[in-house]
Design a protein around this nucleic acid. Structure first.
Length: 119
RNA sequence: UAAAGCAGUCGGAUAAUCGCGCUUAAUAAAAUAAGUGAGGAAAGUCCGUGCAUCCAAGGACAGAUUGCCGGAGAAACUCCGGACGACGUGAGUCGGUGGAUAGGGCCACAGAAAUGUAGACUGCCGAUGGAUUUUAUAUCACAGGCGAUGGUGCAACGGUGAGUUAAGAGCUUCACCAGUGAUAUUGAGAAAUAUCAGCUAGGUAACCCCCAAUCGGAUGCAAGAUUAAAUUGAAGGUUAUAAAGGUGUCCGCCAACUUCAGAAAAAUCGCUAGAGAUUACAAGUAAUUGUAAUACCAGACAGAUGAUUAUCUAAAAACAGAACACGGCUUAUGAACUGCUUUAUUUU
């Protein structure tokens, strides 16, 4: 889990991020990027979403969210965010075909998504 | 030894590295340290409570729930013990278990007939009465008697077998049963047993209904409460004079506002010390209750409890994630283990 200041919390913020429509998809994970930052001091906030439509059971959904979160955390720690640092907010949405993947695969997908982000 | 029945345990462990929520140090935040952090079903939301808000003066009606007996429990479509019925060789298991003679409705197909003390039709008889004459152990099938026969059906007016008879029949004559009622005994009771009575016309009440007992209703913690800022209720819309609204209906009773903004907001409380938990003792067949001791054991709000590696194990291990709390029920669940009981076989 990430510390609080890196987390996307408000519902309005989520809606605003979706509205920008800057999305990319890979291996069952979709990345939505929000607006660009006005100053570098503000931390990039991240949200992780796996809807009930994806899977009925909470355990499976939680598992995917935790894997995505852990991947992001490690990437953040290694300072490999790259261009993604320019954005105010990011949302990762997990889909059905990402459910069965293990940690290494998820991490690679997240890495590729961050690298391929559109400016 | 094998196959069963019942009850129960467990729900991966250890180590390392990197992380997260909450509490405390401690005080506004950050960082730091210490402590602590999902389940037996947290699930389904099927019952029942606490708690909160709104409505409800009151009355009547309607409505809802429950349905063998006794006990437990805050209550329950709950639990325990028992009765009865069904199933099983048995240990045991299962059971929405008041009333069909208060009344109404329905019963496909088949069948002569499906609820009406049925018999039209198919049949049996012709003892008795009548007619005929060959005067009898005859004929007729007229009056009439009968309900056995009828390839059905879940169900055909108690069942099977005898006896009686013209033919027949619970016919009340008999044997063995089934039900019902009365009486007696036993039991706290459901009920059981015995005796007597000829009393005996299906199903469906999970169709309406009848009987008995119980019940204010609605919405659920996104309930709801509080706080500060600019004058204000943190807010939701809608109707207009004989209509509309006030949480089933009727009677009765009651009565208000004007529409823009901070605003799909923020913080705090509700929120976890409890119809709790563990252990021991006592009462009780048991459900459960009482007493004492011990510790405080998740509390988030885009929502923590995670990731990786190594070792162990048959296995990188089933079902599955708290969201106000509690009591039940139901459903899902890998591997392994424990206790008691039953049946069968073998050996001594």
């Amino acid at each position: 889990m990430l510390p609080k200041q890196f987390r996307l919390k408000k519902k309005s913020a989520f809606t605003a991020t979706y509205k920008v429509k800057n999305s990319s998809h890979k291996g069952g994970v979709t990345l939505f990027a929000g607006l660009k930052k006005k100053s570098a001091d503000i931390p990039t906030k991240v949200g992780f979403v796996v809807s009930k439509k994806t899977h009925k059971r909470a355990v499976k959904r939680n598992r995917l969210k935790r894997l995505m979160r852990e991947s992001y955390r490690q990437i953040l720690k290694e300072n490999q965010l790259g261009k993604a640092e320019l954005f105010l907010s990011l949302i990762f949405v997990g889909k059905e075909n990402a459910l069965e993947k293990n940690f290494a695969e998820i991490k690679q997908i997240i890495k590729d998504l961050l690298a391929g982000i559109k400016c």
